[in-house]
Design a protein around this nucleic acid. Structure first.
Lengths: 137, 137
DNA sequence: CTTGACCTGTGTCTTAGACACAGGTCTAAG
DNA sequence: CTTAGACCTGTGTCTAAGACACAGGTCAAG
């Protein structure tokens, strides 16, 4: 399997495969011509990596997990603790986005009815500065 | 006003102020000793920048907005169209996070009851690979 | 006159790839 | 046999929004 071939067979890009290879997550053999050659085992690894990414693990997480399992250890404890961390982070980001979304759509709806106004000496854009003042008031 | 002074007075960091200054969003005068000196006008600008960041505008957006208003134009139309874009993006990211959060917490709850198992030849971590299979089945 | 707290510019680091580029390789057609 | 075009190679740079590091300059207090 060559790079593009592999990437397409799993629905990803050649650049992604190259990236993982650079990081040492995939270890293709070298063909005589210098092309990278991915075995079935590498295909499984990539499948794993993509699944894990999909589940919210970072590439660094995946590297750790792969290391554990290469030592023949069970990756379960690590996987559980990592996903807990990631879930907490996701939860925080989620709440932040929720708040931001609310703020943005409130601003947008307020602004839609207002007439255009030029900047003044002490204000760049009344919309934005006033919005913040109201909110914090 | 010196950098740290300014940053603290508006509840941000010196690095952030330096960053905006590097980008040309803030234009401090130079003191004799070479230190940057921020006027009241710069303080207002920073206040504006922080408000806009808070509302979801990117730094590049803000740069545009500042340019408009420096030309004495009203930034309103630009501000409205930018926030629409950003809101759409935020909405997409929000949905993505929502889905991810669901997937993660489902995985976590499933995994918590399972016993540790070592990796096998064709699977790095059964937890992850099986989870994806189930989901896509 | 030294110590410590502040400042300066500049450069590197972060994520997860995307994109570019110079050059090597393979395949098919002329 | 050659050449065009499609693929591959490694390497380097770019993204956002700062955080952090570092060598060196400046200042107030003791």
């Amino acid at each position: 399997m060559k790079v593009t071939e592999l990437s397409k067979s799993l629905g990803t890009t050649a650049d992604t495969v190259r990236y993982y290879t650079r990081l040492g997550l995939l270890k293709p053999a070298k063909s005589v011509n210098g092309y990278k050659s991915y075995s079935n085992k590498e295909v499984s690894r990539l499948k794993f990596i993509l699944s894990a990414r999909n589940l919210g693990f970072s590439v660094a997480d995946i590297k750790q997990i792969l290391n554990e399992s290469e030592d023949g250890k069970s990756a379960y404890p690590l996987v559980r603790s990592l996903i807990k961390e990631r879930l907490e982070e996701t939860e925080k980001q989620f709440q932040a986005m929720l708040a931001l979304r609310g703020k943005m759509s409130l601003a947008l709806s307020q602004w839609e009815e207002m007439e255009d106004k030029a900047p003044t000496a002490n204000m760049v854009c009344h919309l934005i500065e006033n919005f913040e003042q109201i909110k914090t008031a």
